[in-house]
Design a protein around this nucleic acid. Structure first.
Lengths: 130, 130
DNA sequence: CCTTGACCTGGAGTGCACTCCAGGGGGTTG
DNA sequence: CAACCCCCTGGAGTGCACTCCAGGTCAAGG
């Protein structure tokens, strides 16, 4: 019921170095250790790593990711924790909306390019403008 | 009808250093120069910078952005250029689809968090699990 | 007991994407 | 003509996010 770092690495696609780095950076909970000192991870860490990878892939920096994860694992009172988490989730939602807008912008652009391309197809081998 | 670097900087939100850097990196067309040697930009560069900023904001690297822009300004034959552009646009579309999926994943996660939070609200001041 | 393989730590190194000079030129303004 | 502002180049420096050692411990297998 607890995974060594190599297993987490294989399942998450992140190197052991990266996992230890994330731990130092406060993006992962401090894992348990074997008597010999090796890390043993709760399988739940895999979900968290999925979150991190997803957000990183969307261009969020580690600071942003850390902030957004913080509320989930805060140890304050329930009320404060819920409030913090709520604020954090709202913030994440706003950030995702921004990304969504950027994505839409990119798609619009893409359609525009395709249109331009289509309008050129009927006259092959003509020099293009500019 | 041609803009000095400072003006492009203001309108694009990118520093002159960054504009010169992008030029060196082949992301921007080589601009004209005044007799004194100062760059003069075609206003069309603003659209291109918008594209670049959008893609950068979505987490694409400069190499990817360069590849995607290349087809638009390639100097090959019309046929080759259209094909290249088409392929490039298809590739961009695939990349955007990936981002879209990541975005959706993040949103799902967010909804999940919110649900968890809601299910805790009725019992304030109870210690949270884990 | 020896080897092998997975793991540990602390610290140095890497690649990317800027960002910041130093030192100098050009053109307008008072 | 001096002061100013914007621009130039080449090169060094920065911050982020890893990534890669060197040198060592531990547990299992032969």
């Amino acid at each position: 019921m607890s995974l060594p770092i190599g297993e987490v690495s294989r399942r998450s696609g992140l190197s052991p170095d990266t996992l230890r780095f994330y731990e130092r950076e406060g993006l992962l909970p401090v894992p348990g250790r074997t008597s010999g000192g090796a890390r043993r991870y709760d399988p739940a860490v895999l979900d968290q790593l999925q979150v991190i990878s997803t957000l990183r892939g969307l261009g969020f920096g580690l600071d942003q990711v850390r902030d957004l994860l913080a509320a989930k694992s805060s140890t304050h009172s329930v009320r404060a924790r819920i409030d913090a988490a709520g604020a954090s989730i709202d913030r994440l939602e706003a950030l995702l909306d921004e990304k969504e807008k950027a994505l839409q912008e990119a798609r619009d652009l893409l359609g525009q390019w395709r249109d331009e391309l289509d309008s050129w197809e009927p006259w092959p081998d003509t020099p293009l403008p500019q």
